[in-house]
């Protein structure tokens, strides 16, 4: 029986398969964190994740929820600062960068700033963050997108991060960005796409399981290059899904396919009649599935003993 998986899980798995061992990758918040964690566990154990606020070489024992948190430099080789990291990328030492966006155009230009006009936006998005630096300075950027007509557009409403600019060599000759750098792959819930060597227009490379060329075309708001030979991406394996669900995001920060281990902090009246503050994990149904720590005892078992009816 084929394993079932969500569109998010498919994106993560496809992205994880793109890393190369013994290279560096700039990891932004969200799906790239899961992809890098999965890649390190299954395919590229020596992948060096780089986080913009300073973490280099985290062992990624726990999935980061924020690009500056301690999990991004957990057992790392370097806890630096943002200038150190951006300058390392500017010198050409960071190979891969992973980005998401609200809109993408045929040349891989990205918008993460506003939908509508800048002065009167319909939707104010978070802004560049480190995205522009990653897209400008890394050698190869991988863009993770939901594949929809409103996101794959002829012209982005706001050009936050330059891809191949107006096509051809214009990323270098007109925008002035580093020669030889630029978008490498676009990974979506429907397909993996690349860019034509000459024109730098987006082209279809491989379809996701069960997806047709027609479906990709229908969900793309501009003319897509379709080569004669289109590949097919193997679906997520049972092993990939198991590692993802059980080892990488058991807490369910990003995945909704697991039971979830959601942190809660509760108080109870302990056996000594004094209040006890306890950290617990709940599943999605709200049931307590584990006691983690409390304020007046050193081990989870001792906490549990103080409040046996938790």
């Amino acid at each position: 029986m084929k394993p079932e998986y969500s569109p998010t899980e498919l994106l993560i798995v496809l992205a994880a398969r793109l890393f190369e061992d013994n290279t560096s990758a700039f990891i932004g918040t969200g799906i790239p964190m899961l992809a890098a964690s999965l890649a390190r566990k299954l395919y590229t154990p020596n992948l060096v994740p780089i986080f913009e606020f300073g973490g280099v070489g985290s062992q990624l024992r726990h999935l980061p929820r924020a690009v500056g948190e301690a999990r991004t430099f957990d057992r790392a080789v370097w806890a630096a600062g943002i200038c150190d990291i951006m300058e390392t990328a500017q010198r050409g030492l960071v190979e891969y960068g992973f980005l998401g966006a609200a809109q993408i155009d045929p040349y891989g230009n990205l918008n993460t700033t506003v939908i509508g006009s800048y002065d009167r936006p319909k939707v104010r998005l978070p802004g560049s963050g480190g995205g522009n630096d990653v897209g400008s300075l890394c050698w190869r950027t991988v863009i993770l997108m939901k594949h929809e007509v409103k996101r794959f557009v002829e012209r982005v409403d706001f050009l936050t991060t330059v891809g191949y600019y107006r096509g051809g060599d214009t990323r270098y000759t007109e925008a002035g960005l580093p020669r030889g750098s630029g978008p490498f792959r676009v990974v979506t819930n429907l397909a993996v796409l690349g860019f034509d060597d000459e024109t730098k227009r987006m082209k279809l490379l491989a379809l996701n399981p069960g997806v047709t060329v027609d479906e990709v075309v229908k969900n793309t708001g501009f003319e897509l290059l379709i080569p004669d030979e289109v590949g097919e991406n193997p679906p997520p394996t049972e092993e990939e899904l198991r590692v993802l669900r059980e080892e990488i995001d058991p807490e369910g920060f990003y995945l909704t396919t697991t039971e979830g281990r959601i942190l809660d902090i509760v108080t109870c009246t302990a056996t000594d009649s004094q209040p006890l503050t306890v950290a617990v994990h709940r599943n999605r149904r709200g049931e307590i599935v584990a006691v983690l720590a409390c304020d007046r005892a050193d081990t989870p078992a001792a906490c549990q003993a103080l409040c046996p009816n938790l």
Binding site: E52, M86, K122, S128, G129, D133
Partner: peptide, 22 residues
Amino acid sequence: LRRVVEQGRVKTAEWSNGAIAW
């Protein structure tokens, strides 16, 4: 941020994280 900017209650200018630090 959405409410404040979409209602035009604050003037903004855009930068990257690297740019701010630099």
